[in-house]
């Protein structure tokens, strides 16, 4: 289980406190207004932002001193989720090993993951030769192959059209839950949260609210979320 224990993040005149446990093997949405610190919260869990106080614990072990690559955490950013100069098989393989000639077991796993996401036959293509949806699938294959138990989604599908985004969100949920991952997903859209997130947390006014069931939260939003959603 991932637990944030009295975490306090300070950047210039911005501050955010968080104290919650991420529901295991489930999808949790992160809702809140722009600039409230949703991405910063993910950055702290991934290891890009060092908290000023508190601990981030995985199975009781403190992650805060670890660099991003040593954490049990995968993250999909808004963009640049694949290296544009490498083919997608190499991109996915880098989640396992940086070796120039990975062994057959690695290659097999990479090809299996790409096939699972409908990208068989495209292993040798560079990201630039794929559509936006295919690039998202390749990045998702990388996350699956990495096999890390916590997955952070920082609006990776925001640039896609509504239908494609919905399709990829469903696919992501199905694949990651099947792999047993705990997922934390930033979104601007309450409909996206309602669609795939079991729980939701609200980041607003310098605080992170503890997880609550998405349907209940959206049915009766707290004041900060109510203002963000534009409800009276």
């Amino acid at each position: 289980m991932l637990r944030l224990e009295a975490v306090r993040i300070v950047q210039d005149d911005f501050a955010l406190t968080a104290d919650f446990t991420l529901p295991p093997a489930a999808v949790t949405a992160v809702l809140g207004p722009s600039g409230a610190g949703k991405s910063t919260l993910l950055g702290a869990i991934a290891g890009f932002v060092a908290p000023a106080a508190g601990r981030i614990l995985w199975e009781g072990r403190d992650l805060t001193p670890l660099p991003p690559g040593a954490r049990p955490v995968s993250i999909l950013f808004q963009d640049n989720n694949l290296f544009p100069h490498l083919d997608i098989a190499r991109n996915v393989a880098l989640a396992i090993t940086p070796a120039a000639r990975p062994g057959p077991d690695v290659t097999d796993r990479v090809h299996a993951a790409l096939a699972q996401l409908g990208l068989q036959g495209m292993e040798g293509r560079r990201p630039g030769a794929l559509s936006g949806g295919q690039q998202s699938r390749a990045a998702l294959a990388r996350v699956l192959v990495a096999g890390r138990p916590v997955v952070l989604l920082d609006e990776p599908f925001a640039a896609l059209g509504p239908a494609l985004r919905a399709e990829l969100l469903d696919l992501t949920r199905a694949q990651l839950l099947a792999a047993g991952c705990s997922v934390l997903m930033v979104t601007h859209d309450p409909a996206d949260a309602a669609r795939i997130a079991d729980h939701a947390i609200v980041v607003a006014e310098g605080k992170v609210s503890p997880p609550a069931p998405t349907s209940a939260l959206l049915a009766d939003p707290p004041p900060a979320l109510r203002a963000y959603l534009g409800q009276p």
């Binding site: 991934a46 890009f48 991003p68 950013f77 290296f83 490498l86 190499r90 940086p98 120039a100």
Partner: peptide, 25 residues
């Protein structure tokens, strides 16, 4: 700025980072 975070999450440091990120780009 563009690719450092991804390399970080993949744990690409030292020589592998040079080999897979800096030299080709």
């Amino acid at each position: 700025a563009a690719h450092g975070p991804l390399a970080d999450t993949l744990g690409l440091t030292g020589w592998p980072r040079l080999r897979w990120l800096y030299l080709p780009r």
